[in-house]
Amino acid sequence: MNRLRGPIILAAILVALPLLFPDNYFVTVVVTTAVLHAILAISLNLLMGYAGQISLGHAAFFGIGAYSSAILTTQHRLDPLLAIAAGMLITGTIAFLIARPILRLKGHYLAMATLGFGIIISIILVQAGHFTGGPDGLGDIPKLVIFGWAVESDFHWYIVMSTILILVVWLVNNLIDSRSGRALRALHGSEIAAEMMGINTTAVKSAIFVLSALIASFAGSLFAHQQSFISPDSFSFFFSIELVTMVVLGGLASTYGAIFGALVLTFLPELLVVFEDYEVMVFGAILMAMMIFMPQGLFVGFEKLAQRLYRKFFASQTIDKEQRDVA
């Protein structure tokens, strides 16, 4: 079945990796991080890629989720699973409250507002030391126990994150190819035409903003339990930008693109360590170069390249050229 092909290939890769490279640092630690980033990038892509609403503050929702879990489990001794749900409730409420006024804005104004929101949250994380531990962060976050199974080792986390990623991909793919998903993409294509088809664009935008925040919050809670220590640094403006970069780098409006972008951006710093002092500079240069030469993203870039090669070797199934010219 066509629609299951993506998740199955993804699952196959994620199962094969630890079998091929057992006990490998890159697989158990770096890939796990990449998978977490992929979940976040997919959630941001719902908003940016499909609905066309830019957000430069996504890390805030990730952070609210992480801190909710951390605070509720350490200071209030709540069960981790309940804390995850509570974190999602808190994040969802905040997202719901700001969704309408923020999503009324467009383009650069929307970018600024989401950026501002992200910075406000990260300042609060630093300043409200009473709850958040301030710049020093919060430690001793308890382990996650799922139905009696304690998630302890790096490899356990690899399994948990991978499973959730596959689930998220499946859900998001279903959603995109449905009435709601089409409404979402329609408002990206033309807000006015979408309204004329009976779509309440304001409501759809708010809904996707909340959904996207909920997924980020969930990922944040997982992150808190995985790390057992969190500090505001992980949820700063820079991380928001990194997430946006993953989405754009992979290719907007493509779930697999978002995964690919997350993978590249997680591995790149690991590999650039060899440049030592020049690491930051090289990273910036690569980022610029990729966006200049593949503005539609790496995934689309590779896809097009593959298609071109395919056509070259398996000849001609082309669209009527004349009609292309008129359009």
Partner: peptide, 9 residues
């Protein structure tokens, strides 16, 4: 993102 890349560079 290009300008962010430039700023990082």
């Amino acid at each position: 993102i290009i300008t962010i890349g430039a700023s990082i560079f």
